[in-house]
């Protein structure tokens, strides 16, 4: 299931620092992600984990350090950013589907407008993806007619539409009712097994244990600890991680 890859780094983050006004949100982050690697980022709220992955597709600007995505360095250059965004997809906590467009139009928007695909081919691909996430029959509905779990699966299908190399998940199950979490996690697990590079911010430790190659624990804007799943849960080195694990695993 988990494969030890010896492939190249697809994301290289070095010396990354970010401030919101005076607040030092990310402190000296260094992180390399290999192609096909599944990384889970966890930590208490406000620890900077969402900010970190939002830097990777430049939804957040940073002041110091550098991020290389598939060899391209992130700068203010609009062309480069669009190129990177077509390779890096993101799934949001609140789905952020476009409520004025039907499900199928949500999916085909980027292929048609960003990748210049024809309506017919993008539609065919979109239907395949909807089939894969199990909601092909809802294609003509509007987002607000679906349940939260279905909306998040649509959001995942939408982010797959552009055939990205990297998927970023920003707490994809946090806004869902408990009974809908597993349907979304199942889709994510399936994706993980297909070898796409993933960085997931999530507190679903069962998911992390099952598919992650590495788990990263962040606190106070820094990476405190990173380890493979077995050692992460059993051999926490820092007190902060131990405390965090105690808090979330006792339930």
């Amino acid at each position: 299931m988990k494969k030890e890859s010896i492939s190249k780094n697809i994301i290289e983050i070095s010396e990354l620092n970010k401030w919101y006004g005076d607040f030092h949100a990310l402190k000296n982050i260094n992180l390399n992600v290999k192609e096909g690697e599944i990384i889970v980022v966890c930590g208490p709220s406000g620890s900077g984990k969402s900010t970190l992955i939002r830097c990777v597709n430049f939804l957040e600007k940073f002041q110091e350090g550098s991020i290389l995505v598939d060899g391209t360095e992130l700068t203010d250059d609009a062309q480069k950013i669009r190129k990177i965004r077509s390779e890096v997809s993101m799934v949001f906590q609140h789905f952020n589907l476009f409520p004025h467009l039907s499900i199928i139009d949500n999916l085909t928007l980027a292929p048609i407008w960003v990748h210049n695909e024809t309506k017919a081919e993008s539609r065919e691909k979109a239907l395949k993806l909807l089939d894969r996430v199990g909601i092909k029959d809802q294609a003509e509905k509007y987002p607000n007619q679906l349940s939260g779990g279905q909306q998040q699966r649509v959001a995942i299908a939408r982010s797959l539409c552009t055939s990205p190399k990297i998927m970023l998940f920003d707490e994809p199950t946090s806004a869902l009712d408990p009974e809908m979490i597993s349907e979304v996690l199942d889709v994510m697990i399936e994706l993980a097994n297909e070898g796409i590079t993933m960085i997931c911010v999530t507190h679903e430790m069962g998911f992390a244990r099952k598919v992650a190659n590495r788990i990263i624990f962040m606190d106070d804007g820094q990476i405190v600890e990173e380890n493979d799943p077995e050692n992460f849960f059993t051999n926490a080195e820092s007190d902060r991680l131990q405390l965090f694990l105690n808090q979330i695993l006792t339930h």
Binding site: L59, A78, R85, S86, S89, F92, L109, A110, V114, S159
Partner: peptide, 17 residues
Amino acid sequence: PKGQYEAADAIGLSYYQ
């Protein structure tokens, strides 16, 4: 909502799109 702008950015739409 801000999320709409972010989602549009994230799928690679330009400012005008």
